[in-house]
Write a protein that binds this DNA or RNA. Structure first.
Length: 569
RNA sequence: GGCCCCGUAGCUCAGGGGAUAGAGCGGCCGCCUCCUAAGCGGCAGGUCGAUGGUUCGAAUCCAUCCGGGGUCACCA
């Protein structure tokens, strides 16, 4: 049940009826007509811009349209009042029954309340994390993981068919470096002094890899040339690192549907096929790039390269796909991988990159645009860096200390393209300064209400509460609470439309705030307490409101991947 | 220098064509014989970086500029 959608339909139906009566010209486009919560609650429950939007095409004064529309809407039983205001806004007040009915709808629909059919089952692929398999995840990856996971849950809730995917960059030079680093740890495991040269990975996390190599090869690879062991150690080490990363993701509560390997693309002809496809479109050529404008690198020299004409699809310069030694650049398998996603039949692609990869956005979009003939949109979300206060902690420690739920919520309290401060002290604090706690506390209070209510002998199943006499919910503060709940389905659609899961976190904070406010009013006005001594009918209605709030909090936290707590400890 | 992101209250940030621009923190003033005060209410605080433009209307869209960050041809 989406009240805003319902009333919007009422408005557009009324406009159509007015056109049929000749009050408005026929054939007006209603696409720009919006029904929204007004900025100022004093303006009513919902406002529509219909009159202002239609004034010009209808050739009428906005207020004239608004008045005609108001008169018509006022006849509908759902509408308690319609007033023209300002330059032509039409402010609507809904009858109390609507809000009471909404509470019932939440209890009836449960965690499905707010689900949307907006995605219409379209297949979307969300690629995220995709950290190189050269070490454990760090805090920066965590944010990408959380954003991608929450976005996936959000899109699924809004009606998309979602595939979560991890692209393993195991085909380039960085895994050779990994292998050489692991080899040194292997020597170390055999009692030799490791030589961690400049450019190798120095991290302790490779020590167990060295041990494993010793267990497997004994001393047989010592003093052997790298040509003997490189490929094998590379595979072993990167597999072990992927295990590490899968463990990190699991600790965070992030699940992937598909792991795709870059290395697996080599030798299958897929890269060649993708490039040939582009060649067939006349988008591959041999050429020389201009030096970067303004700043020419010291060692720049004109060089003939195999280039992708990405400028034909919106990029600023064309991009090399092949090195002079005839091997592919990193970009070529990336193209093939995205081509693969297109061929698998996805209707939409989403990539979540670290902000340091911002320079690849245009070329990646150009490739997808070309390879799908403009059919498949690719949205790339850049996730800004995380500033960790308390420094240098590897991921497991962060999650172990703060908890996956807290970590996840905090990572979503910022838009993806803004840097995020992750302060341990704050995050673990049990106070209203900590948004995670604040939202969880509201849920805990709701559970407390349900407990008390059950002790008072009231049936608190959702089915029973939905049957309560909700007309009892008439106090303005209670109606306000219901109005906030009514925004949930609308928020889901807005967040899904923009691929912006952080909106859910902000909404939950507002919802919790509304609830804490209502709770506290019970201190001064005992008639606003949820459990009313000796009055089962009144209690049931009020508890129903609390429970409905709890349902929406749970649904919202579910999208963030955060477990709602029953009580604070 | 090119491209991308950011610039909104003292601080951290929402809002991204609509009516007097919001929240939290910090500051000041209030609220516990009462379901969890781990909370709630109120006050003070703004030329929405600047300047032009688009239109009935701009924090929001466009252009130019100013700050801050990222990135920039055979590294992924």
């Amino acid at each position: 049940m989406n009240l805003f959608a319902e009333i919007r339909t009422l408005v557009t139906d009324s406009l159509t009826a007015l056109a049929a009566e000749g009050v408005l010209p026929a054939g007006l486009d209603h696409a720009q007509v919006a029904v929204e919560p007004p900025r100022d609650p004093a303006h009513g429950d919902m406002a529509t811009n219909a009159a202002m939007v239609l004034a010009k095409p209808a050739g009428m004064a906005p207020r004239a349209i608004a008045e005609a529309l108001a008169a018509r809407l006022a006849q509908d039983p759902r509408v308690a009042g319609a007033e023209v205001a300002g330059p032509g806004f039409l402010n609507l007040r809904l009858s109390a029954v609507m809000w009471q009915g909404l509470v019932k709808a939440v209890l009836t629909e449960g965690l499905s309340f707010g689900k949307s059919g907006m995605g219409a089952g379209r297949k979307v692929n969300v690629e995220f994390v995709s950290a190189n398999p050269t070490g454990p995840m760090h805090v920066g990856h965590v944010r990408g993981a959380v954003v991608g996971d929450a976005l996936s849950r959000l899109l699924a809730f809004a009606g998309w068919d979602v595939t979560r995917e991890y692209y393993i960059n195991d085909g380039g030079a960085q895994v050779d470096v990994l292998a050489r680093s692991a080899y040194e740890r292997y020597r170390e495991a055999n009692g030799l002094e490791p030589e961690i040269r400049e450019g190798l990975y120095p991290g302790d996390y490779l020590i167990p890899v060295g041990e494993a190599l010793k267990a497997r090869f004994g001393t047989s690879l010592l003093d052997k040339d790298e040509s003997v062991w490189l490929a094998e150690i590379r595979d072993i080490a990167s597999a072990m690192m992927m295990e590490e990363i899968r463990g990190d993701l699991a600790a965070l509560g992030v699940r992937m549907d598909v792991y795709s390997s870059e290395k697996a693309l080599y030798g299958t002809g897929q890269i060649e096929a993708a490039i040939d496809t582009l060649r067939g479109m006349g988008l591959i050529y041999e050429g020389v790039l201009e030096p970067p404008k303004g700043k020419t690198p010291e060692d720049w020299e004109p060089r003939v390269q195999t280039l992708f004409r990405s400028t034909a699809h919106g990029d600023d310069v064309d991009r090399p796909v092949m090195k002079s030694d005839g091997s592919w650049t990193y970009f070529a398998p990336d193209i093939a991988y995205h081509f693969n996603k297109v061929q698998r039949g996805f209707d939409e692609l989403i990539d979540i990159f670290g902000a340091d990869h911002g320079g690849y956005v245009k070329r990646m979009k150009a490739a997808v645009s070309a390879l799908s003939n403009g059919r498949v949109p690719l949205d790339i979300k850049l996730v800004q860096l995380v500033k960790l206060y308390k420094n240098g902690e590897p991921l497991r420690d962060v999650v172990e200390q703060a908890g996956a739920d807290v970590t996840r919520f905090m990572m979503l309290t910022r838009k993806n393209d803004v840097t995020l401060d992750f302060d341990f002290a704050k995050v673990l604090e049990q106070s209203k300064d900590n948004p995670v706690f604040y939202v969880q506390y509201a849920n805990a209070r709701i559970n407390s209400v349900l407990r008390k209510s059950r002790e008072a002998g009231i049936d608190c199943s959702d089915a029973a509460l939905a049957q309560a006499d909700l007309a009892i919910l008439s106090h303005p503060a209670e109606i306000e609470m219901a109005k906030k709940l009514a925004e949930w389905p609308r928020l889901v659609e807005i967040a899904a439309k923009g691929n912006e899961p952080h909106r859910v976190a902000f909404y939950l904070y507002e919802l919790a705030s509304e609830f804490h406010g209502l709770w506290n009013k019970g201190n001064d006005d005992t008639s606003l307490r949820f459990v009313q001594e000796g009055n089962a009918a009144t209690s049931a209605a009020k508890v129903a409101l609390a429970r409905a709030t709890g349902v929406v909090i749970s649904a919202g936290l579910g999208i963030l991947g955060v477990t709602p707590v029953e009580e604070m400890r």
